[in-house]
Each structure stands twice: as C-alpha cells, then as structure tokens.
Design a protein around this nucleic acid. Sequence first.
DNA 1: GCGCCAGCTG
DNA 2: CAGCTGGCGC
Lengths: 263, 263
Amino acid sequence: MKIATWNVNSVRTRITHICDWLQANPDVDVLCLQETKVIDADFPHTPFTDLGYQTYIYGQKSYNGVALISRSQLQNIQTGFASVLGDLEDPSLDEQKRLITAKFSDIQIVNMYVPNGSEVGSEKYEYKLRWLKLLKNYLKTLLSQNNDVLICGDFNVAIADLDIYDPKGRENKVMATDIERETLAQVLNLGFKDVFRKFETAGGYYSWWDYRSGGFSRNRGWRIDYHFLTQSLCDRATACVIDVEPRKLTQPSDHTPVIVTID
Amino acid sequence: MKIATWNVNSVRTRITHICDWLQANPDVDVLCLQETKVIDADFPHTPFTDLGYQTYIYGQKSYNGVALISRSQLQNIQTGFASVLGDLEDPSLDEQKRLITAKFSDIQIVNMYVPNGSEVGSEKYEYKLRWLKLLKNYLKTLLSQNNDVLICGDFNVAIADLDIYDPKGRENKVMATDIERETLAQVLNLGFKDVFRKFETAGGYYSWWDYRSGGFSRNRGWRIDYHFLTQSLCDRATACVIDVEPRKLTQPSDHTPVIVTID
DNA sequence: GCGCCAGCTG
DNA sequence: CAGCTGGCGC
C-alpha cells in the first residue's frame, strides 16, 4: 500500500495538478492534503469522486484545512483534537482546522498541518509549541487504541540540519529552532520513526521550496513534510520517496508530495 | 488602412488575446486600446515590439489607461486634455488617464475612454458630463489644426435605442440617458459621423456585453465603442465591422474590437 | 512569490 | 462576473 502527503496550498487552485498526479500515481491508496484553504461547503469533491476516490475533509475559510483522498472507504474519521481528547483546556487549539485521522486497513493515519509559527518568540510561535504539546497527548491516546499509527503532513519543522539547504543561523529561524525540534522530538519519542531516513541518509532532499527567492531552481529547500511511523509499521516500509515533479509545473504548490510504501 | 478600437479591460491580463488578434489581423495599422489598467512603468511593451509594433501609452494604476499600438511610427503624441488645451480650469478632468492622440498619415487619431458615470445623478455621472463638455473644446482645437480627424474608443454612451438590446427604461440607465446622449451629440455635432451606420442600419450589433447576467450568449449587448469620423474621412471609409470573435474566448474582455477601413 | 480576503469599479 | 488594490499569512 502507498500513502502520500502533500501540502497543496489551495485545493481549488491546484485541483488539476492534484488530479493529474493521482492519475499518474494510481497505486497511491490514500493522499493526505494540507492547506486546502476552503470551507467544507466549497470543497471540490467531484474531481476526486469522478476518478474513483472518496473524500474526507476538515476545512475552514482562507487558511489551513486538511483532507483525506482515498481509493477505499476509510473508517472512524475524527477531526481536530477534541474528537479524540474530549473538551480541551485550551479550545483555541482547535479553532484552526489542522488535524484529521482515520483508519485505513490496519493503520491509523493522522494527517496534520502543524502551525508555521510566523516568527520566533511571536504569539503564533507560542501557539505552535502549545499545539505540538497537545499533539503529544492526542497521539498518546491514539497509540493506546491502535497498534500501527502513521502520522504525516506538513510539520513546519526541519528536524535536522541535514534537512535544510543552508542551516547557517538556523537557531534563530522559525521551523529550525532548538525549542521547536525538542518539542517535536517529545512527540516523536512516543515511538515514531522518520521512515524517509530508513532509506536515505544523505542531505539535499527537500519537500518545500519557498516561492520567494526562486529557491527551487537552486534546490534551496527544506524537508518539513514527513511520514512518521510506529516501529512495526516502519519495519514493513519498503520505500519512502519525495516526488519533485509537481514542483516543476507552472503555478505549483510550494510543497511537493512525499510517498511511503508499506508491505 | 485599418484602424481598430478595443477596450481590453487590462492589457496585462489580456496580452495573449491581443497579440493573437493582431497576428490574425495583420492589416490593422493602428490599434487603440482602452482600460489598460497599468502604470507606464509596467506596460508590457515587448509582446508588441516583438510583433513589429510601436507602442504609445498613457496609463495609471488600476483604472483607465489608453494606448496606441501602431505598425508605423506615429507623430505628435499628445496625452490628456491639457496637452492640447493648455492649463485646465478644472484640472480634475485630467487626473484620470483617458485620452491619447497622434497623427497617423494624414489622420489625427483620438483614442479615448469616456468616464462610465456609475449611476445617474452621482458625482461620477456629473464628472462624465463635464468630461464630455471639455472634450468638445478639445476636439474643436484639434479640428482647427487638422482636416481629417478620427475619434474612437469606449464612449460609454449608447447613442440610439437601436444600440441597446433592450432599450426599455433606458432613460434612467447610465450610458443611455437623454442628457448623456445630448451631451455627446454636442460633441459629434462638430462634424463627426458614426461610420458604422454608413454600412449598417439594423440593430442587434453590439460591442460590449456585461460580464454579469451572461449577456453575451444571448446577445444582450450595447454598442458603446465607436469610430466617429469627420465627413471627408467618412466618405473615404469602405467598411466598419465589429469583430465578435475575441468575446468568445475564455477569459475575454467584456468589449470586442471595432475596425474601420479607410481608402 | 503566491495563495487568501474584503472592498472598489464597471 | 471579472478586473483592480491592499493587507494578511507563510
């Protein structure tokens, strides 16, 4: 089976790219989208259903929004933190639509769009850290209910210097500070493995290139989109690849898909 | 020789349509554009110069803006009222970039974008009437200096009921009120002939179809784009046609070109 | 740079 | 309905 993650930066603007990619990759079972940027009432279901996919969505106006595009029906769809954790101490952490989970075969798939954090020390940065801390509780609960958990999406954190084209000064840059890395590590320490690194230990592999500064042509990217798998699931993985092709198209998303293959 | 007028509703958005049209109509000597909607620094010259045209522009940010696209060099380019009339009593009438004139062969071509007027009785409506009154003085001056004058562009007035798909209630509609018609008639009475009517006396011929209400497919249009010629020039005209083809393209301007042929 | 929106004009 | 702007977010 294949599971893919792709921050599409507007599902409506990118609909042709996404459908073209699905047709070129017919063996992808579940595609996890982030930054759909559309309210549920306006989500473009038919392009996907016409191709034989089911859609599971959790969107809002203008910002954020996640979706699952699946060849087969998924079970137990849950959206936001509260659907898993019950009422939140800090309900603001569920105001933005960033989290959807569902069962696919024996795997609990969690599709997320971690807050960006804007600037180090900002209110948005603090929100990001609080969000990641609550994510740990959320995943603890899911792990208590499921043997195999796959979390994927746009994590907005480069977990190692190897994952940034130029790590110089990264300590003060959002998406690369020690505190962000440590807070995310606390989450991953629950038992999640970066499956991409099972197959590739070199640098120079990225999933996001800023629109600004023409970073893609010079491969000035960051690896911030991941699949993290629980150990037994990671053991079953046979490949994890970043498909840079969609980033080469006209009017591309700034992110490109990452696909994991599991036996 | 052929002279064309076309309100393109943004020269940058429409650049492909315009260049395609020029290539399909290589015998057009001068194309008069309105609503270029771009400051001079950002005008797309190269698409035109690459095709062998010269460009003469008079633009502003966001709104209005006119340009002359010519196969040969034009003489005596003058922009705005003041370039012809000297200092204006009401300088606000030159704040919007709506007027460019130049000599092509023996013909003084005046390319204009008459104010729309917004709503009857509004401040913008009064501005339109004041603008047309000043236009009369402006043309009087040009007529004193030139034998053959051609004025063309988007006049934002349907000069007869025949020029509106449904003239019912037109007396209270901007672009069709008696006062607008009379004010424009005062201008045309200087000696200008509606050359289109030299060849076609029937209704049902329009140059603009509102984007709203899907008016084009039902031919719910208005004829508000004209070539008005001084008598001797009108006598030399052998054709005047409205080319509806560009209005059928995807993402079209709401106006379509009008072309006059002069021997 | 490239999405989004609201608010403007026609 | 389809241009434009300015402001926000990343």
